[in-house]
């Protein structure tokens, strides 16, 4: 069981509550959606889950473990990967190096072996390189392997970030507005990939601004507004919920 379970989570910045009393779940095998207008607290919620921000109140469980107070890199180690709303690549590194750092979580080489440059360390690096190449192939990015990531077109950068997250073989992937700036066809293709990940047993949490995309892709949707969860349910329930309509269209 590697479900993400959030109970009554709150975050205050000074006196301002960015997230208050939020509870939700993202079970494996499902694409779960989290929507809300700008400033609703979606990215704050991701930063709380991934350990970038400290939790003010409430609990976060992942795979049966309490990760409420766990630091960011250990949350990642336990199998949580993410993409960023404003793509964050290692701009100066090549595309393949960007993907290779994704494997870090499962690398076996010890610090000493790496420092001494032991054959085992070099073998693992070579193996990761070929796995990264395979991943590039799957995403149709092979010809860019040695290009600097920072110089790629926007859509390609999104793909590199996605590959990096997948390289860590996560049990939960948090996607922060992954189709922002894409047209419907591109978004649709990516949506299929997300469903495929869920079918393979991963928990997928999709954070979006765009209601239409989320209702197409997700099986279950949570709606956040001003830091509070105002609705949750199937896509049909959500689009017909008066509170959601008010939040999106304004009262």
């Amino acid at each position: 069981m590697s479900a993400l379970v959030i109970e009554n989570l709150s975050k205050h910045f000074g006196g301002v509550a960015a997230v208050s009393g939020v509870s939700m779940e993202a079970p494996p095998g499902r694409v779960t959606g989290l929507i809300g207008p700008n400033g609703a607290g979606k990215t704050t919620l991701i930063n709380l889950i991934t350990g970038v921000l400290t939790v003010s109140d409430g609990r976060i469980h992942f795979g049966g473990q309490d990760i409420t107070q766990v630091s960011a890199h250990l949350v990642a180690r336990s199998g949580v990967a993410r993409t960023f709303q404003n793509i964050r690549l290692l701009a100066e590194a090549s595309v393949i190096d960007n993907v290779m750092i994704g494997f870090y979580r499962n690398e076996k080489t010890s610090t000493l072996a790496s420092l001494l440059g032991l054959p085992s360390a070099r073998r693992e690096t070579a193996a990761l390189r070929s796995r990264a190449n395979a991943l590039l192939e799957r995403f149709g990015m092979s010809q860019y392997a040695n290009h600097e990531a920072g110089g790629l077109a926007y859509g390609h950068q999104r793909r590199v970030e996605m590959m990096r997250a997948l390289a860590s073989e996560p049990r939960l992937i948090l996607l922060d507005e992954p189709v922002a700036g894409m047209n419907d066809v591109e978004a649709g293709e990516l949506g299929e990939i997300f469903r495929g990940l869920a079918r393979s047993g991963m928990s997928v949490l999709l954070i979006e601004h765009n209601i239409r995309f989320v209702t197409n892709i997700c099986e279950y949707i949570y709606v956040l507004d001003s830091g509070r969860m105002i609705a949750s349910g199937t896509p049909e329930q959500i689009v017909n919920d008066p509170a959601v309509i008010t939040a999106y269209l304004g009262s």
């Binding site: 970038v52 630091s71 960011a72 890199h73 990642a76 960023f84 964050r88 994704g102």
Partner: peptide, 13 residues
């Protein structure tokens, strides 16, 4: 290059 990215991938800064 980016501490936030590094720790999001499990690298202890």
């Amino acid at each position: 290059q980016d501490e936030a990215v590094a720790s999001s991938l499990g690298v202890s800064v």
